[in-house]
Nucleic acid binder design. Structure first.
Lengths: 171, 171
DNA sequence: AAAGTGTTTGACCTACTTTGACCTATATGG
DNA sequence: CCATATAGGTCAAAGTAGGTCAAACACTTT
């Protein structure tokens, strides 16, 4: 079994044991425990604890710094997951984005408020930087995907009556 | 818990206990109480009790000197206008963005849901395109600006027709 | 064997905190 | 007036801790 897999299951066990599905860990401590480079922890986090996997990660540097991992369940057959795979993909033009948002709104998949937030993020004013159009399309796709995943997780957690905040006040 | 965090909550408790949301403290006394350098108090004040956090600070040196901290609530609209001008500008680093979102959330200027939407749009995963960091900062600023403007437009329209705003919420 | 994919490591970077040396402002008694 | 004690301010260095990136490595597929 690879190191990364051990670290992955170790973290998942920690999350399973925490009743609120959120944990805090010290990167250097964990690295020492597994006798590996600290950046190995980042590798595990970035490959196995992504938004697509249903994890939100925040961290703080400096004295008393830590990494917070929050897990939110997502049903894999979700409509939005399908849309992200089939409609967003890795490239999204502006008209495609607008069409998708309109469809998501009229089908009541997301609220008008959420749609306007996404539209604001993807608006030409927001993306007014001098980069080639195909890079903008890649950017649109990434932003759309992350925002849709965030929306759908919120909707699901509201259904379960719990709240998973990404932004929490530090204690 | 970090020293700074302890001092921060100590001061916030004092302010919470004072019915007019304003207190006076002696820097050296507080430093002695926490067994730290007096300048530590200044550090806490300058990182956690800034105008952006909604605090005004005055102080007097010399005999009988003291530090006065006053907590002021502002309307979300004014606050956001101010922040877009002063904090976002034309360039926004990732830590700046996260700090701003945290502050907007804890001050109840925007909801946690809106903050996570913006965080999703600005997350490193969203902006994972090969462009120079200063261009990313410009992008972050534009996206943040547009999304915040969208949020406050929605807040304003929700309040339009009703009493002329000013949401004052305590704690 | 070569190419591709995923993993591991280490050098270097950035963010946040703590401390202390030195500076400035105000009050007060001689 | 002004010397001195009192009290806050500033700044930079040191300390703590996480982030990034690219090179090296390992394992698979072709």
């Amino acid at each position: 079994m690879r190191l990364s897999d051990s670290i992955e299951s170790f973290i998942k066990e920690m999350i399973g044991a925490a009743e609120d599905d959120g944990i805090e860990l010290r990167r250097n401590e964990l690295a020492e425990y597994f006798h590996c480079a600290p950046s190995q922890i980042n590798y595990v986090l970035s490959t196995r604890f992504t938004p697509e996997h249903g994890y939100m990660i925040e961290s703080r540097r400096g004295g008393g710094g830590c990494i917070r991992i929050i897990h939110v369940e997502t049903s894999p057959t979700d409509h939005v997951d399908y849309l992200i795979r089939e409609r967003v993909g890795t490239s999204l033009t502006e008209p495609e984005a607008r069409l998708l948002l309109r469809q998501l709104t009229v089908s009541n998949t997301i609220t008008a408020a959420d749609a306007s937030m996404i539209a604001a993020a993807l608006s030409p004013q927001s993306l007014a930087v001098p980069i080639p159009e195909e890079m903008k399309s890649a950017l649109r796709a990434k932003i759309m995907r992350n925002m849709l995943l965030t929306v759908i997780r919120r909707i699901q957690s509201e259904h379960r009556g719990t709240t998973a905040l990404i932004i929490r006040e530090r204690k």
